[in-house]
Design a protein around this nucleic acid. Structure first.
Length: 1117
RNA sequence: GCCGGUGUGGCGAAAUGGCAGACGCACGGGACUUAAAAUCCCGGGACUAUAAAAAGUCGUGUGGGUUCGAGUCCCACCACCGGCACCA
């Protein structure tokens, strides 16, 4: 194809129209009360200008792309796939009369720019801006109708100022479980304050009041302040917790889980250790239920919704409290979560996660003893809750009294409950316990160390065998009083449920494996309905057996009923309750990076020396990152920001305080960018209220989409298109922030994205592989059908197992497949040796494979319109599909046919000659040399032409509504194939066709539109100045804003139609009948057919099925 | 293992339960040309049969079922792709 003659001068047409659109600001979207210039095509089309209210504007259509990370590699062919789809729909909706918002921006914080900065010392902003410039050039060269006045980058100071502002909103809010929404933290502050502004003692805030205001009256003031602060901080939507991370001493940095392989750093293979670090976390789990439920209100694909559901993953079950059997001063009971409370009778042991806080308590409990003889000692008081505690507590007084009376000599105090609880224990039992636990203490310690070294992967999918150790302690099964051992094992995760389980080995696969390995008892409590199934390891539902005690019996109950009854029983005994657990974890929100939004947080010390955090006021935003010379983390593992000592320690408003050193993750900026587009230049708010209401459809009056005539409200972004890689994280995080903003009445819709479509992946071109024995020594060829389990091999080839010999055979890629491969029958073989079949397959595009297609190259050769058209013609938007350069040539040829339908060949030759003799700058003017084709005339179209046109309008319109771009394009090809045969071509028909083509190939359509429009000088002259007139003329006849054509069904009606006739369901002939022929006529015509006669002659006709206008089926015996 | 999706020519694909393969690529043939490119026209599911045409049989991953009629609906299975994965 290279070097061949151009199908049409796209190299001149495309820049010309891109410049025109930019100068006209043709695709600017207007907000309510924004000044609309009278000569803008939007003003002309909708007859509005000046400042116009939301009610006077046409209905909105917000169509959004997932904004890209501007990487150094530039645009990938996958980006324009989604962008073209949204652009086609934006242009279509604009033609339909909507006020279309179609913006673009940059998700520009990110690791690559920072890594480059670490290497070179250059500020990441420099790289980022260069990359944005390159992306902008590439995207603009594709002719998308973005409103560039709303462009934003998450790294813009004026943008991340508001990202920080939203963080402050999260920091200053808490989730009230009673109202099921976020509320201002001020409410909680007031509830807990010594002198509340309101009386909060009753209603939903009662528990906080009694917990902190009345329960701690005896503690000193400064401690009360501290406790209150702790209570408040523990409720914020943005909170601080200490979590463990992989720390690599040699690299001086924290590593992500994926960067750690086999306990060593992926880069360099240095040792890594788990290190606890202070982190910011967002309380997304509070929204788990709403994030799950509201999925039902939005129009996303099932698979996408399912992915989100899986991620949140609710499981319904119950919590159960197990008392610890052994005397211990601080541990009284362990709570577990189970989805099978009905199997409680089968719980034969318990397992704690190795990192469970109670494990330490168990070890510690063996090393301390508290013995009292009815006397208050200093240690009793310390146990009780620290200095200042008073022995006046009723529970303690009573316990002491009983200890004296009953001669029991040990008191346990649990200060973890409020008020502290006391129970009596037998000292001799305690000693036995102590010995047992001490024996296990070393094993526990060793095991925990061993587990800490494992990666999540090793702990999870790679774990072949269960491991664990006995703690020495026992618990009591509440339902039957059985004493069961407490183990620790890493198959129980610390961060799910309560971090502890009741093990029911008979009916849980994992517990069964563990119990088998460690010889723990296995008791059947569920009977499978099919008695041939072994009950051991049976995890399905059945009937409860062996599940009775004096207090309750579940025997004979089906699982569902057994669950219900046991939960009721647990509830009545205050030992447990129904509970839904979510797999969703809180969102770790801080990163040890430079190139991210700094937290508007400072750290202070109170009088007692306790560190606490405080938010900076909104007025201090934006908080800029300090300039640095070295972007690496410090040697002590502090984030890079710690290098800016002056910035960190010298805070004018807060002497003595220090700044938070972490930054926000890349997800932060992308959580709300779709809101900023609505009002991108607003300096006073993250988004203006009117703009937000109009574009998000939050105004109740306007939720019914007038133009679409749909009853369903279209709230939020009307269409959001992007890749599946963001199916979970980005889309979940953004929904979470949106819901918080909704609760705080900062946005007016519950969900951000009403309709969402995932574009499919574009794979590389087809590659062919031939197999041979020992390829390095050019061994004999082996046909691919002699192999099985053929897989991708490192290095880009394939490897498979020989079916008979079992030998591993390597397949090498054939670099010149067109020359080396030929098709024979249903498969490909080597040209040089037709007995050898080759393997043909496609791969993901990747740098290492060398199969990446660069859009710039395609554009040079075929132009933007062909590129756009091809990406849409490849197949359904959502499907994964391989790239095929020949396919681009195919649609390019189609555009050439469109061009040749319109233009005069001689004038084109003239143009081409002029191009060779004229200097390059003046080439654009030469387009005027090209004349319209002589066959195009201002005449009435023939009925046949009208039929072809209206069939095309119908198909394209319906396909656009259904986002079936590939079939819309084939409909246009059908039109062109037909139109090429017409002797005279009506301008009106061709103009209408250009309107259909315009969303897909806007440059070519505009160029031809301007040419055919010149044919009809139907615009009346006015007295306006020449310049205005020129713009007005353009605006009046703007293709982008010309109303979308409507098809006339009456024109599509045929007088005669062909319908198939089948005999016994097999099609035998086609008959031509009048369109309104009745059934009798159809039947007669069918039977009269000669071909049909051959099959029905002499046979009994049992039945004739007639579907009017569709088919006739004759059933014979 | 669990969940979701997809299986149709050599390839990308199309078909409200009603003529399977529209449209395009690749391929083959022809026209134009000194020639090539470009363009225009024609032909392509497999098999049987035939000089050719007509014709027939089989065909939408596999096996069943519903129906006058199934790529489409139902049941079971297989393969591939994607997500989750010791989540109690």
């Amino acid at each position: 194809m290279a070097g061949s003659r151009k199908q049409y001068p796209f190299h001149l047409i495309e820049p010309k129209w891109q410049l025109t659109w930019e100068q006209q600001q043709a695709f600017r979207a207007f907000n309510p009360n924004e000044e609309i210039p009278a000569n803008h095509p939007f003003a002309v089309r909708h007859k509005v200008s000046g400042k116009v209210s939301a009610a006077q504007l046409p209905p909105k259509f917000y169509i959004l792309d997932m904004f890209p990370y501007p990487s150094g590699a530039g645009l990938h062919v996958g980006h324009p796939e989604g962008y073209t789809a949204t652009d086609i729909l934006a242009r279509y909706r604009r033609a339909c009369g909507f006020n279309v918002l179609h913006p673009m921006g940059w998700d520009s914080f990110g690791l690559p720019a920072e890594q480059y900065a670490v290497k070179t010392g250059q500020h990441p902003r420099v790289t980022t801006e260069a990359n944005i410039a390159n992306f902008t050039r590439q995207i603009k060269s594709l002719g998308f109708s973005y409103d560039w006045t709303r462009e934003l980058a998450t790294t813009d100071v004026e943008y991340f100022k508001w990202t920080q502002w939203i963080f402050l909103k999260l920091y200053n809010s808490w989730f009230n479980p009673d109202t099921n929404k976020a509320e201002s933290i001020e409410i909680l502050e007031d509830v807990l304050s010594e002198n509340p502004k309101r009386e909060w003692t009753r209603g939903e805030y009662g528990k906080y009041v009694s917990g902190l205001r009345t329960g701690y009256v005896l503690t000193p003031v400064e401690e009360r302040v501290q406790l209150r602060r702790k209570e408040i901080d523990n409720h914020r939507l943005a909170y601080v917790a200490t979590a463990e991370f992989w720390w690599c001493e040699a690299l001086g940095t924290v590593l992500a889980n994926e960067e750690v392989v086999d306990g060593k750093s992926e880069v360099g293979g240095f040792p890594v250790v788990r290190k606890p670090m202070r982190q910011w976390i967002l309380r997304i789990t509070a929204y788990a239920e709403r994030l799950l439920k509201d999925l039902d209100t939005i129009d996303w694909s099932d698979s996408l919704k399912e992915m989100q559901r899986n991620w949140i993953n609710p499981s319904e079950g119950a919590t159960v409290e197990f008392q610890i059997d052994i005397p211990s001063p601080t541990v009284f009971s362990i709570h577990v979560f189970t989805t099978r409370p009905d199997t409680l009778f089968g719980a034969t042991y318990m397992v704690l996660a190795p990192e469970h806080w109670m494990v330490e308590q168990i070890i510690a409990s063996a090393n301390t003893r508290y013995r009292v003889n009815g006397q208050i000692t200093s240690s009793t008081v310390r146990l009780f809750g620290g200095k200042g505690q008073s022995p006046e507590n009723a529970s303690l007084v009573e316990a002491l009294a009983r200890a004296k009376n009953e001669g029991v000599d040990l008191i346990e105090v649990n200060p973890n409950v409020n008020p502290p609880a006391c129970i009596l224990q037998d000292y001799s039992r305690y000693v036995t316990y102590q010995q047992e636990v001490s024996k296990q203490a070393q094993a526990i310690k060793d095991y925990r160390e061993q587990v800490a070294k494992k990666t999540d992967l090793e702990r999870g999918e790679l774990a072949k065998e269960k491991t664990g150790v006995f703690t020495g302690a026992y618990a009591i099964n509440p339902v039957n009083g059985q004493k069961i051992p407490i183990w620790i094992a890493d198959y129980v995760l610390g961060n799910y449920g309560t971090g502890a389980i009741m093990a029911v080995p008979a009916h849980d696969t994992r517990d069964f494996e563990f119990a088998t390995k460690f010889h723990l008892p296995i008791i059947q409590v569920v009977q499978p309905s099919d008695s041939t199934i072994d009950w051991q390891g049976f995890t399905d539902e059945g009937l409860a057996v062996n599940s009775a005690d004096v207090q309750i019996s579940l025997n004979g109950l089906p699982t569902a009923e057994a669950k219900k009854q046991i939960i009721e029983w647990l509830k009545s005994k205050k030992l447990g309750d129904k509970k839904t657990n979510y797999r969703l974890r809180d969102w770790l929100f801080s990163r040890q990076r430079y190139w991210g939004e700094p937290f508007p947080i400072i750290w202070k010390k109170d009088a007692a020396g306790n560190l606490y955090h405080e938010a900076l006021p909104e007025s201090s935003l934006p908080l800029l990152p300090p300039p640095l010379e070295d972007y690496k983390p410090t040697a002590t593992g502090e984030p890079p920001l710690a290098r800016a000592k002056n910035w960190v320690e010298n805070i004018p408003s807060n002497p003595g305080a220090t700044r938070e050193l972490n930054t926000m993750p890349q997800w932060a900026g992308s959580c709300w960018y779709y809101l900023r587009y609505l009002d991108a230049k607003n300096g006073r708010a993250f988004v203006g209220k009117d703009a937000e209401k109009y574009w998000m459809g939050g105004d109740v009056e306007r939720v019914t989409n007038r133009l679409l005539g749909e009853k369903r409200p279209t709230q939020g972004v009307d269409l959001y298109v992007g890749g599946t890689e963001h199916a979970v994280l980005h889309l979940l995080y953004a929904r979470f922030w949106h819901k918080v903003l909704f609760d705080l009445e900062l946005v007016s819709t519950r969900e951000p994205f009403f309709k969402l479509v995932n574009q499919g992946l574009i794979l590389g071109e087809m590659e062919y592989f031939a197999f041979r024995k020992s390829p390095t020594t050019l061994g004999p060829w082996i046909s691919s059908d002699e192999l099985e389990d053929v897989k991708e091999a490192p290095g880009g080839g394939l490897v498979g197992k020989h079916k008979t010999s079992g030998e591993m055979i390597v397949g090498l890629r054939l670099p010149n497949s067109a020359d080396e491969v030929v098709k024979v029958g249903s498969h490909f073989v080597l040209k040089s040796n037709p007995d050898i079949k080759v393997d043909a397959r496609t791969f993901k595009m990747s740098k290492s494979r060398g199969n990446v297609v660069n859009p710039d190259d395609v554009l040079v050769e075929y132009g933007a319109d062909a590129f756009r058209l091809y990406e849409m013609f490849m197949g359904p938007l959502q499907d994964t599909k391989p790239w095929n350069t020949n396919g681009v040539a195919g649609v390019y040829k189609f555009l050439g046919r469109v061009w040749r339908l319109f233009v005069d060949e001689l004038s084109e030759v003239e143009f081409e000659q002029a191009e060779t003799t004229t200097e390059a700058q003046r080439h654009g003017e030469l387009l005027n040399l090209i004349k319209l084709h002589a066959a195009i005339k201002d005449v009435a179209p023939t009925p046949a032409q009208l039929k072809t046109l209206h069939a095309c309008i119908k198909k394209v319109t319906e396909d656009l509504d259904g986002m079936r771009f590939n079939t819309a394009i084939s409909a246009m090809m059908v039109f062109i194939n037909d139109a090429m045969t017409w002797e005279t071509k009506s301008v009106s028909v061709l103009k209408t066709f250009l309107q259909l083509l315009a969303p897909f190939a806007p440059h070519l359509a505009e160029e031809l539109w301007s040419k055919v429009s010149g044919l009809k000088a139907n615009v009346p002259m006015t007295e306006s100045s020449a310049a205005t007139l020129d713009i007005r003329l353009q605006a009046l006849d703007s293709l982008a804003y010309s109303p979308w054509p409507k098809f006339d069904a009456a024109l599509l009606v045929e007088s005669e139609i062909e319908i198939p006739v089948s005999v016994n369901g097999k099609p035998r002939d086609v008959i031509k009948v009048a369109v309104d022929a009745d059934n009798a006529t159809l039947e007669a015509a069918a039977k009269a057919s000669e071909k049909v006669q051959q099959f029905i002659a002499g046979k009994e006709i049992k039945k004739v099925i007639i579907v009017p206008k569709r088919m006739v089926n004759i059933v014979v015996g």
